[in-house]
């Protein structure tokens, strides 16, 4: 990632805080007793512009001529982030700050010369195809992304209100650890629904009836996250569609 993109991402994060759009999964993270996310107090604008703050919660500057709700031009945003980072570096002369842009990107390496390639060669394994070329780091990133998705689902599974529930009932009350959700048995004819049901149909049914919320659209990120959590709890269980 280049320095510029780091700085831009930083500015975007700060802008989100400025606008008060902070994503806070409500009860669930609190349930696990994690400390609340810090909320940065941005100083008042003095010249009628918009104050932008770095994610350290201290370094800030005012963008003159910019009004609340307006977007900066790309060039202006680059200038603002450059100025913020310069200010931060002046205040932290002894901090180690690596400028990614000046780092040498690893030179493209032939698969045979890579660590994975050497390992495969030494073990007499097939070599050279796309998937075999991914590194441990790649796998870690993918796992992290997947686990985060599952964790979102876990939060929703334990928070009836987040699903629009109106009577204090959440999924985990009847299904601790997503037990008795048996995702491996779908599709199957669900006699009470009078049709062949998928897991999502049953999730929606539960949201609508026991939880007393509104059924989610099949593409709703909440429904996808719930499916992810439920499936993740049944790892290793053989698929057995149609089972009653």
């Amino acid at each position: 990632m280049s320095r510029r993109s780091i700085a831009l991402a930083t500015a975007a994060g700060c802008a989100a805080i400025l606008a008060g759009v902070a994503y806070a999964p409500q009860v669930l993270r609190a349930q696990q007793a994690q400390p609340p996310l810090p909320i940065h107090q941005v100083p008042q604008a003095k010249d009628g512009g918009v104050v932008v703050m770095l994610c350290d919660g201290k370094t800030s500057m005012e963008v003159k001529g910019l009004k609340t709700g307006e977007s900066m031009s790309h060039a202006q945003a680059v200038e603002v982030t450059r100025e913020l980072m310069a200010q931060w570096q002046r205040e932290h002369p002894n901090e180690k700050w690596e400028i990614a842009q000046t780092e040498q990107a690893p030179a493209p390496m032939s698969y045979a010369a890579s660590a994975a390639g050497a390992k495969a060669a030494s073990k007499g394994m097939q070599q050279g195809d796309t998937y075999a070329s991914f590194t441990e780091r790649d796998y870690k990133i993918w796992k992290n992304e997947t686990d985060n998705f599952v964790a979102e689902g876990k939060d929703l599974f334990h928070d009836g209100a987040a699903l629009g529930g109106t009577i204090g009932v959440s999924c985990d009350m009847c299904h601790p650890d997503a037990s008795n959700t048996h995702p491996e048995t779908y599709p199957k004819y669900q006699v009470q629904l009078q049709k062949v049901a998928l897991l999502r149909d049953m999730i929606d049914w539960c949201i609508e009836n026991p939880v007393k919320g509104k059924a989610l659209d099949p593409n709703d990120p909440k429904l996808r996250a719930l499916e992810a959590y439920i499936l993740a709890q049944r790892k290793g269980v053989p698929l057995d569609y149609g089972k009653h």
């Binding site: 009860v27 609190a30 349930q31 696990q32 007793a33 334990h158 985990d172 009350m173 601790p176 650890d177």
Partner: peptide, 14 residues
């Protein structure tokens, strides 16, 4: 309230 909510979660391992 947080203490109660934690205990009320059957699968809350905290």
């Amino acid at each position: 309230a947080e203490r109660m909510h934690t205990v009320a979660g059957l699968d809350n391992g905290i």
